[in-house]
């Protein structure tokens, strides 16, 4: 951690992101960059569009305009010509099918060969449909080259290296703490269907290692020994920590925390701030914090961005932002100092 992290290369760049809901402009042309290894915060009063912006960054909702680039790759933008993509799923199979029909009509193929052609058509259709669902990177890039663009889905963002927590805790309540973390590890594990059926030594070893790693993560966030408790039975503060552990399980580069201190008491908040600094300093994570409460972010942020009515009204170091008259006005008596 040498020098000012704000001078590092950006890991994420949001370029004039806009999202409208009907007539309402929830986020209006917001530019936003996150330098690698920094802790940046996004604050603003209730209804400022923070969560909408957040959801756009994570691929939960599409932007109306603008784009998000993560580690050099355009991940999120307004969908372009996605109608044509469905055509791509169907067209190869239809063409082969038509060809087979024509050949059969002309009497060139029949019987066994025709059946084989029909089967191939079916396989092509299945293959292209699966491609559209699994959506490997090369497929998305290929589509982009011919002008079809579809934003990354939340799971694609995780694969790319973005982890997140939710404002209103969304754990798998009926699972135990360790199972929650194991679910978070999904992208890190590779056991496939056949291995699961056969219980191969490899998959057994992988599961065992995963459980160990999950234990480590629980320890990291301060939940040592609580692995076998049902998530729903954990106290509120622990549930927040568990969510962080679950997000960490996917080994993200960038961690997005949506109001992590909401509903916490001062002591829990303090612990949380310490944990967040540790995640950056020890694990080298880049962190974006969304907060309603200014006090939480002032101590740890390298930079604070203020959103109001969907627009960016201020950006700078915590001190600069604290003194900005527009920010004070936006918060209007809220604890701005």
């Amino acid at each position: 951690m040498s020098g000012n992290p704000m001078d590092n290369e950006p890991i994420l760049v949001a370029d004039s992101v806009t999202r409208r809901f009907g007539g309402l402009v929830a986020v209006n042309s917001v530019d936003f960059t996150i330098p690698e290894g920094s802790i940046v915060s996004l604050i603003g009063p209730n209804g400022a569009g923070k969560t909408t912006f957040f959801n756009v960054l994570l691929g939960v909702i599409d932007p109306t305009a603008g784009s998000v680039v993560f580690r050099g790759r355009r991940m999120i933008a307004r969908p372009e010509r996605i109608g044509f993509e469905s055509l791509i799923w169907v067209l190869p199979a239809v063409l082969v099918g038509l060809l087979a029909a024509l050949l059969a009509e002309a009497g060139i193929v029949s019987g066994r060969l025709l059946a084989l052609l029909g089967f191939i058509t079916l396989l092509i259709l299945i293959g292209s449909l699966l491609l559209g669902i699994i959506r490997p990177v090369w497929y998305s890039k290929g589509l982009e080259r011919i002008g079809i663009f579809r934003s990354a889905r939340p799971n694609d963002m995780v694969t790319a290296g973005v982890g997140r927590t939710f404002q209103n805790i969304r754990l798998f309540h009926n699972m135990t703490a360790i199972e929650n973390v194991l679910v978070g590890m999904h992208t890190q594990l590779h056991g496939n269907l056949l291995e699961a059926f056969l219980q191969t030594p490899r998959v057994k070893a992988e599961e065992k290692a995963a459980e160990q790693r999950a234990d480590e993560l629980l320890t990291l966030v301060g939940l040592r020994g609580k692995g076998n408790e049902a998530a729903r039975n954990l106290p509120y503060g622990d549930q927040r920590r568990l969510e962080i552990a679950r997000a960490l399980a996917a080994e993200p580069k960038l961690l997005l925390l949506d109001e992590p201190a909401a509903g916490m008491n001062p002591k829990e908040t303090l612990d949380l701030v310490a944990l967040i600094s540790r995640l950056r300093n020890d694990l080298g994570l880049t962190i974006l914090l969304i907060e309603h409460d200014m006090k939480v972010v002032m101590g740890i942020s390298d930079r604070v961005t203020v959103l109001d009515h969907g627009e960016k009204i201020a950006e700078g170091t915590p001190d600069q932002v604290r003194k900005d008259p527009r920010v004070i006005e936006a918060y209007l008596g809220a604890p701005a100092a």
């Binding site: 959506r135 889905r153 679910v183």
Partner: peptide, 27 residues
Amino acid sequence: RLVESRLGRAWEAIREDELAAAASGIN
């Protein structure tokens, strides 16, 4: 064997909360 594997966990996660499952990297 299937439901007790990684895939089974994914199904369970989806059933409980689809968005949280996607945010955990599950397609």
